[in-house]
Design a protein around this nucleic acid. Structure first.
Lengths: 154, 154
DNA sequence: AAAAGTACTTGCAATATGCAATTAAATGAC
DNA sequence: GTCATTTAATTGCATATTGCAAGTACTTTT
């Protein structure tokens, strides 16, 4: 079992545990019915600060048509607001509503709690190492630029 | 921006880049048309060595009914074989076919290549740190036992 | 001012999902 | 031993998600 295989195994298992396969969220974490994809959208809209639809769908690597419909859903739930860009009227800019911020905060707290339980299993040194490593990993992915994705192409 | 927030952010972005959201695989990585979920199933059937349906669906955290259908699909493609357990005739044991091993090997090679490109961006020391950290992380998740998942409940 | 390109939306058909109900087999109670 | 209960897996059904193709609205190029 070579090293690459081992790291692929570690990553595969980790990513799945993080929540790859169960698409639907639930009351416990969101209070609201927000799917996994939608929680990623909320996360990214907050992080990117008034991004365009295109920008977010690129960042998430999901098809713009699927994205369009997901955003429609989030808008319907009152979690996201759209406005036409003043620079280019083709472009729709996204922002979280007050309600959207509340829901995302809820998810944040839920995640913080779960992560705390996991990181509580480690020594302080290990925690720091792991956090630093994840940073290194994300930077390396960004530098390696394979279109932003790893596991699959396109 | 506190530490927990930062680590959640690192994890969220990493997991997405790993291939969270684009469900469909493509020719480049699999040759065969295998969805992301199905590639996880192949991976796990190999890893667990003749596991039952229940075992794999639990491990992956996907509903047994959905799983049943996905396995049917993989069987139809000739990648997975079922047999009745000798110990308990309710139980179906899964195994990769020769063809299934070929496809999974193909995915492995594809992943190894992409990971190589990423880890090539790091120093040897960084690589070792990151690999070790992922191991620590998976162990800590296993120890913290929150039902095997992180991002969402259920 | 026509042509080409970009941002986004909708129609549609294929696929994936989860719950409820069912079958088949094993285990437990008596 | 037999009847009730539990467990593993499958199917029906209703709903949701997906991506491609085609369309609209706007901007840039020529």
């Amino acid at each position: 079992m070579n090293k690459d295989y081992n790291i692929r195994e570690q990553l595969q298992i980790f990513v799945r545990r993080y929540g790859l396969l169960n698409a639907a969220c639930c009351d416990e974490c969101c209070g609201e019915q927000v799917s996994m994809v939608q929680s990623h959208i909320l996360f990214e809209v907050r992080r990117l600060d008034s991004p365009s639809m295109q920008r977010v769908s690129d960042e998430l690597g999901i098809d713009i048509t699927t994205f369009s419909r997901q955003v429609k859903g989030l808008e319907g739930k009152g979690l996201v607001a759209r406005r036409v860009s003043p620079d280019d009227r083709r472009v729709t800019l996204l922002a979280l509503t007050a309600e959207g911020r509340v829901v995302l905060d809820k998810i944040d707290r839920y995640m913080a709690e779960r992560l705390e339980r996991i990181f509580g299993q480690m020594s302080l040194f290990e925690r720091e190492t792991v956090v630093r490593s994840l940073g290194l990993l994300n930077e390396a992915i960004a530098r390696s630029d394979q279109g932003g994705t790893i596991a699959c192409c396109k």
